[in-house]
Design a protein around this nucleic acid. Structure first.
Lengths: 192, 192
DNA sequence: GTCTATATCGAGATAGAC
DNA sequence: GTCTATCTCGATATAGAC
């Protein structure tokens, strides 16, 4: 197989999402990917190395999903709403955010890097769109866009936590609706 | 030791907070608690049974922290602000929320129960205080208090995720500031 | 680049003495 | 109630042949 490496990566991405890092064993990766023992340690020096590569890919996937939503030709504040309401796998949790509570991930530079980079990217992008909304006149200039961007990200991340805690996707939607209501309430109507 | 059981519980609460369920081994619990093998399985039938008891206690602790903040004699909306800004161990994460991403926790009724119960309690309490704010005239009646309560909880939970992802407590504060700003913006000034 | 065999260690629990 | 000994299994690799 020329693409054994890809198979290993794909299996690892799935397993990390489902079980996290510690609970994902090389054995499980081999079974899911169909690769053999030898292939694993031929392509990657360790479980950590494979996981780091898989996390990087997962973060890239998420960027690819986010990009069109925040850069459509809709008005800025509408793009923010679109971000908040974009389809999500509520019960599976966030592939990136779910890793943050494993000490081993947070302590290992290589493993934490893709996570921090993704969050950083997402906050930046959101803040940029919020700043556009200010220029368009729909968002008050008095709002700190970096803070609000963090709030939006946090609401989504926390929404996943609630959905999983209750085992009910609706709990995430509820949190999202709440923040949408706040945004509606502060939206400045443009002169006509 | 008459209170070996308590020592086991206390050690487990700490370890669950720090490492989560799967990564917490009976061995580690014994070392931290100072108890011996025999005591563990004398007092608890399994690791899961001990963890369930420990999670229940942790949730109770959190209730005890929350209660005075939401039931002080401050105006309702101020109590909400106090909730959002109460001191937290940002980098340690939420003792309850951090568990939600472990499949084994979510699948086991006994383990998920204390988590769901705590979230349910917190949402209820927040919603009640928000409804008081509506009666006091500082919060618009058009706001759905259940949705907003979910948003507040989610912001805090997501704030933990961000703080851990960046390994920076400030990231949580940022998210909190953002939602405080929104609340300030929608607050209805009472007639004087 | 992939395979099978082997090694070491800790997890999670049981057994039976004290 | 607590102790020490023991058991079984899976995690995470390494070794060396093909």
């Amino acid at each position: 197989m020329a693409n054994t490496r890809e198979h290993l990566m794909a299996a690892t991405k799935e397993l990390l999402w489902e079980r996290g890092y510690e609970a994902t064993s090389p054995r499980a990766i081999l079974e899911k990917s169909g690769a053999g023992q030898g292939s694993f340690y031929h392509h990657f020096s360790s479980k950590a190395a494979l996981a780091a590569a898989a996390l990087q890919e997962a973060a890239d996937d998420m960027r690819v999903n986010l990009e069109p939503v925040l850069h459509s030709d809709a008005p800025a504040l509408q793009r923010i709403r679109n971000y908040l309401t974009m389809p999500r796998e509520e019960l599976r949790g966030c592939r990136i955010g779910r890793m943050t509570h494993e000490p081993i991930i947070v302590q290992d530079e290589t493993l934490r890097d893709p996570i921090e980079a993704y969050f950083s990217y997402a906050e930046q992008e959101l803040a940029t769109v919020l700043a556009e909304a200010q220029r368009e006149g729909t968002l008050s200039e008095s709002i700190n866009v970096d803070d609000l961007a963090a709030t939006l990200l946090a609401t989504v991340q926390g929404g996943y936590v609630l959905a999983r805690g209750f085992q009910d996707p609706e709990r995430m939607h509820q949190a999202i609706r709440g923040v949408l209501t706040l945004i509606d309430a502060i939206e400045q109507k443009k002169e006509v």
